[in-house]
Design a protein around this nucleic acid. Structure first.
Lengths: 221, 221
DNA sequence: TGTTAAATGTACCAGATAGTTCATTTGGTC
DNA sequence: GACCAAATGAACTATCTGGTACATTTAACA
């Protein structure tokens, strides 16, 4: 949060003296909004609550984001752009096939485990049938490259006789994503139904190892 | 929907003549409520909308279920009880280990694919941190038996030298559930981001095969 | 230093929403 | 057929909620 934005709330008495800080205000709103949407979903989140927790006012939310859905979309877009950044930091091409796949699985698992907010937002968006992903040009133009990276590493592995042929890169992605995602998304229900805490360090470590192992076995000739 | 309940809406003119049908009304409400909660989540669902689509009135919702959350909980409870029924219909004990696991994986995958409503409600409940599962005595006393069935089949397989030892039954369940669940829960986002339709028959068949294959490879010595 | 567009504050509102009140009808029982 | 608890109908309300109108301040620039 910008200095200007954080100051306002405190000094915001009637005399009303403030400094303009569009970018700071925008960021401040997005930060708070993300927390609210992550916690309560799109319909569950309250614009008033977001505004209250902000250094600015409800007025500014509508000024910058148009309406509630616009704000939600902005949060979604920012999150996907962040993912894209992480994805690009993953350099599979410079690793031998098996190591590349091990890294991919471990990285994917860790990213989900460390970013439950991401997982929850994706859940929320799926509940809404991906309507807002669909209406976002920013996300449409994002071109996630994960699949291509996977394909490249996989084909090298096949050529080297390390992996069995005939697997689609997308299936590799779906398998590892499913294991990583489920482990976070369904924590609450698993805990209630089986009394098992998937968030506990040992449980997490075990599932992480299982995820990597599963992927390698899947590829094994 | 009961005959009485369905009649009311049509003949429900001012003279107000009706037949009592507690069970029918209850069922009718639950059916409609489930659809609404599945489609819009707990916060997104509207009691008025549920009432309108019902053969009875909002009054009866509160009469039978107390409040919105009570109705939601009832829907959740019914769904889990239904699962329990299906689970019990699955007789792994009478099959050889490999066949048992194949059946388990296929069954689990199919159940999710054929019951997206179930998947969506579980998502909704996880968004709410499993709060309502926790507060339901009916569900607490349900005692899902899947894990025990899996353990039994797995141990037979280990004894016969067909499966490698050292795997937890819960991990088997989590792996197969993750693959089956994700395939339905994340359909929308996958479609938007990768332009791939996981609901298409061929895609479904491929993932089903992959799920079974993955489980068997996981167990292979 | 006067002008102006961008940025922000304050107060307000119309419609939506969960829940309620009060009266009425039904159906079983004695 | 009188009585009563369970079941149902119709209208009502307090509050919440997304969104807006109007006024003011800031800061860049001519």
């Amino acid at each position: 949060m910008s200095k200007a934005a954080s100051t306002q709330k405190v000094t915001g008495r009637k005399p009303a003296s403030w400094t303009q800080d569009p970018e700071g205000v925008r960021r401040n709103i997005l930060t708070v909004a993300k927390e609210e949407f992550v916690e309560n979903g799109l319909s569950g989140a309250r614009v008033d609550e977001i505004a209250a927790r902000t250094a600015t006012s409800k007025r500014m939310i509508y000024y910058y984001f148009g309406d509630k859905e616009g704000l939600y979309r902005a949060v979604l877009e920012e999150m996907y752009e962040r993912i894209r950044g992480f994805e690009r930091s993953l350099d599979l091409a410079s690793l031998p096939p098996v190591e590349a796949m091990t890294l991919l699985a471990g990285f994917t698992f860790d990213y989900h485990a460390e970013n439950p907010d991401f997982v929850r937002l994706v859940m929320v968006e799926n509940i809404h049938h991906g309507r807002h992903l669909a209406s976002s040009d920013r996300i449409a133009s994002l071109n996630l490259s994960a699949i291509d990276m996977i394909r490249e590493a996989y084909e090298r592995g096949v050529a080297a006789g390390l992996f069995r042929p005939g697997i689609e890169a997308l299936d590799i992605h779906l398998t590892i994503s499913a294991l990583a995602f489920y482990n976070v998304s369904n924590r609450a229900s698993i805990r209630q139904v089986f009394g098992h805490d998937m968030g506990a360090p040992e449980a997490l470590a075990r599932r992480r190892a299982a995820a990597i192992d599963t992927l390698l076995r899947m590829l094994h000739p």
